[in-house]
C-alpha cells in the first residue's frame, strides 16, 4: 500500500489546487454564514444547514466522484503501465478526492460556527461528522459506479438517479410502507430502513441530537431509545462507515479485473 500513499500524496496536491474545491468550500461558507445572519444562530442554523447538507453533499460527492474517475481515465492507463497494483491506484485516487472534498466541507460549514462563536458544539460536531461520512460514502458510491459503468453519460445518469432515490424517493417509499402497514408493529423494520439509507441515517442522528425527536411521534421515541443510547450511536456510525466500505469494495473488485 506504499504506492497508494504516493499516489494519494500527488493527487491531494492536484485536487487541492483545482478551482472546484475552494469554490465548493466558499459556497458552503457563504450559505452557512447567511443562515447564521438571517436565520438565528446556534441550533437553528444547524437545523437549517442539515437539510442543505443532506441534499447537497451527496449530490456534489456523486457528481465530482464519477466525473473525476472518468476524466482520469488516460492518467489511470498511464499509472497502470507502471509497476503499481490496481488496488493502490483505486484507493490512492479515492483518498485524493475524498479528503479535499471533506476538508472543503468541514471548513465551509465549520468556519462560520467558529467565528460566530456558536454554542451548539455537540450538534455542530455531529453535523460535521455526518457531512464528512456522507462525502466519503457518496464518493465511494460514485467510484463504484464509474468502475462498473464504462459509458460516462450512463454512469453520471445512474449517479444522479441514485441521488434522487436516496433523497426523495426513499422517504416517499418509507411513508408508503408506514401507511400500508400502519396496523403492524413497524419499529424494527423502520429502524432497519433508516440504517439502509445513509441520508436518512444522517437526518435521524441530527434530529435526535437537537432534542426534537418528540416531533417524530411514536417512531421518534423508538428511534431515540435506539439511536440516543451508545449502542445506537455506534450502530449509526457503523452503518455510515458500511456505506463507505461496501461500495469501495465492490468498486475495487471491478476495477481490479476490468479492461482499460
Amino acid at each position: 500500500m506504499r504506492s497508494a500513499g504516493k499516489i494519494l500524496k500527488y493527487e491531494l496536491s492536484n485536487v487541492f489546487r483545482s478551482r472546484w474545491i475552494p469554490a465548493y468550500a466558499l459556497l458552503l461558507l457563504l450559505l452557512t454564514d447567511a443562515l447564521f445572519r438571517f436565520g438565528g444562530g446556534g441550533e437553528r442554523a444547524v437545523l437549517s444547514l442539515l437539510n442543505v447538507v443532506l441534499v447537497f453533499v451527496p449530490l456534489v460527492s456523486l457528481v465530482f466522484g464519477t466525473m473525476y474517475l472518468y476524466n482520469a481515465r488516460e492518467f489511470i492507463e498511464l499509472l497502470l503501465a507502471q509497476p503499481v497494483g490496481r488496488a493502490a491506484i483505486f484507493t490512492g485516487l479515492y483518498g485524493g478526492l475524498t479528503l479535499p472534498l471533506a476538508a472543503a466541507f468541514a471548513i465551509g460549514v465549520g468556519a462560520p460556527f467558529v467565528y460566530h462563536r456558536a454554542s451548539a458544539t455537540a450538534a455542530v460536531a455531529i453535523l460535521l461528522v455526518t457531512g464528512v461520512l456522507l462525502t466519503a460514502g457518496f464518493v465511494a458510491i460514485a467510484f463504484c459506479i464509474a468502475a462498473w459503468v464504462q459509458d460516462r453519460a450512463k454512469g453520471l445518469g445512474l449517479a444522479i438517479l441514485l441521488w434522487l432515490l436516496g433523497t426523495v424517493v426513499y422517504d416517499g417509499a418509507v411513508l408508503l410502507v408506514v401507511m400500508v402497514f400502519g396496523d403492524y408493529p413497524l419499529e424494527t423494520p423502520m429502524l432497519l430502513l433508516t440504517l439502509l439509507n445513509p441520508i436518512d441515517l444522517g437526518r435521524v442522528l441530527m434530529l435526535l441530537r437537537l432534542d426534537i425527536a418528540a416531533l417524530m411521534g411514536y417512531t421518534g421515541a423508538v428511534f431515540e431509545r435506539f439511536f440516543g443510547g451508545p449502542l445506537g450511536m455506534v450502530a449509526a456510525v457503523a452503518a455510515l462507515l458500511g456505506w463507505v466500505a461496501l461500495p469501495l469494495v465492490l468498486g475495487l473488485r471491478r476495477f481490479r479485473t476490468r479492461d482499460f
Binding site: 492536484n14 489546487r17 482520469a72 488516460e74 492518467f75
Partner: peptide, 10 residues
C-alpha cells in the same frame, strides 16, 4: 501512450 493525460494541476 498515444495521448498523454496527466493530473492537470500538477
Amino acid at each position: 501512450p498515444q495521448a498523454a493525460c496527466f493530473p492537470e494541476n500538477l
